[in-house]
């Protein structure tokens, strides 16, 4: 993953719990990097270790941390790091969700070394749609849920997210029913 992701985890921990907590999580995770460079690639393992150590140190289940991280990503990190695209992604939540596939297509072009997830939209209705999430990385379903909730907050729209299909239960991708 790009350093921006790990930086985001760092920002989230520091803003909520302070520098000492972050150092302890890093020590527990065995991560020695002092600074994460936003546009440099890091092994996925680092991110997973950081999340695992944060769960141990803060005594919060990992899926809750990932969910919170999803919201934090949208509301803080992505708005900064992907500002232009976030700004042009849509004027409202459904528009943004519909643009999400194209969004990630562009991200793939800009970050040639990144393997970004892939999104698709189906069953577009007046107040709902199905969001399909394809990825090689395991265990990030709560992160995407948090991400959608974060978008709801960004567009000031109440949103309900239902995981309808799950990679963990034998499907090849996750399917979320997003209603607003």
């Amino acid at each position: 993953m790009y350093g921006m992701v790990n930086r985001s985890v760092e920002d989230m921990v520091k803003s909520a719990h302070g520098e000492a907590m972050w150092l302890e999580i890093k020590r527990r995770a065995g991560v020695t990097e002092d600074i994460f460079i936003s546009n440099a690639g890091y092994p996925d393992e680092i991110t997973y270790k950081l999340v695992g150590a944060a769960s141990e140190v803060m005594q919060i289940p990992a899926d809750k941390i990932l969910h919170a991280f999803g919201e934090h990503w949208v509301l803080n990190t992505a708005r900064k790091g992907y500002g232009p695209m976030m700004a042009m992604g849509g004027a409202n939540l459904p528009q943004f969700l519909e643009n999400l596939p194209a969004f990630h297509d562009r991200v793939a072009l800009l970050y040639p070394n990144l393997i970004p997830p892939r999104f698709a939209v189906s069953d577009r209705a007046e107040r709902s749609l199905r969001l399909h999430y394809y990825t090689e990385r395991p265990g990030l379903t709560p992160f995407v849920e948090g991400l959608i909730h974060g978008l709801g907050k960004m567009f000031e729209t109440a949103v309900q997210v239902t995981l309808q299909e799950n990679r963990g239960t034998g499907h090849d991708h996750d399917v979320f029913l997003v209603a607003w």
């Binding site: 921006m4 460079i37 936003s38 546009n39 790091g81 992907y82 232009p84 695209m85 562009r106 800009l110």
Partner: peptide
């Protein structure tokens, strides 16, 4: 614009 943004990030 995104590239410029990345440049800013860098």
């Amino acid at each position: 614009v995104q590239l410029l943004q990345l440049q800013n990030l860098a």
